[in-house]
């Protein structure tokens, strides 16, 4: 994945969340965003997902330029996968229907073919028995895994995930992280916001620390989690890791 951020600025009213951010990265397979609450991780991810317009600057990701009108953003969104913290699935549709909906309505697949494709995905991730259940009948972890299935079913260029495990009971966290890990090993490119530092350490090619109106620090997981040169990052990590052994 090639990412080029130039002078990116995003404001909500008077609140400048991202202030002239600059960054160029190349050859990254998994980018992980960490940082304190309210730092702007979600905002940056939503801009990367084409869900939010920037106020100034530009982002070029692979060949896509993201400072463009809504019509082009819609087209862009169709080729990437996005998974939120929770409530990703439509409650009136079964797991299978949730996966099939974008395939048939957005990507023009035949219903039969879409269902077969969805079923094989569910099978692969050991979710086949839940295909005909509604989200209300599924655990949080199952819901998130099905949401990830829906996102990858369209064979996206890359997958964006915003704290996919932070709304879950701890017991479900690992099953979701395992699935993400598996996808990553198969070569799916990821941009992930997470508070799971262990996972970030293992899975990331590159880490961005988002705070104080921009990218306060960045580097390889080794730089961030082992060398620990940046005092701002260290303060954050000390706090987050306080109760993990």
């Amino acid at each position: 994945m090639r990412l080029e951020i130039a002078n990116l600025t995003k404001r909500f009213g008077d609140n400048v969340v991202l202030d002239s951010v600059n960054l160029t990265l190349d050859g990254i397979n998994s980018l992980v965003l960490i940082g304190p609450s309210g730092g702007g991780k979600t905002t940056l991810l939503r801009i990367l997902a084409g869900l939010e317009h920037m106020n100034d600057g530009n982002i070029i990701i692979n060949s896509h330029c993201l400072n463009c009108p809504e019509q082009e953003l819609l087209e862009y969104r169709r080729h990437i996968g996005m998974v939120y913290q929770a409530y990703n699935l439509f409650p009136h549709l079964t797991a299978l229907q949730n996966i099939v909906l974008p395939l048939t309505q957005v990507h023009g697949m035949e219903k039969r073919a879409a269902e077969e494709h969805a079923c094989s995905l569910l099978e692969r991730f050991h979710l086949a028995e839940h295909a005909h259940k509604h989200p209300a009948a599924l655990s949080g972890g199952q819901q998130q895994r099905i949401a990830i299935c829906r996102a990858v079913a369209i064979k996206p260029e890359y997958l964006l995930l915003d704290e996919p495990t932070s709304a879950l009971d701890p017991e479900y966290t690992s099953e979701v992280l395992d699935l993400i890990e598996e996808l990553h090993e198969e070569g799916m490119e990821l941009v992930l916001v997470t508070h799971e530092m262990g996972f970030a350490h293992n899975a990331a090619d590159y880490v961005l620390f988002i705070a104080d109106g921009g990218i306060a620090a960045h580097g390889t997981p080794k730089d961030i989690f082992e060398t620990r040169e940046n005092p701002r990052v260290n303060r954050f990590l000390d706090k987050v890791l306080k109760y993990t052994s």
């Binding site: 869900l51 969104r77 409530y87 990703n88 439509f90 909906l101 974008p102 309505q105 369209i154």
Partner: peptide, 8 residues
């Protein structure tokens, strides 16, 4: 939001 994200 989700509908928007999946490109509907």
């Amino acid at each position: 939001e989700t509908a928007k994200a999946i490109g509907l």
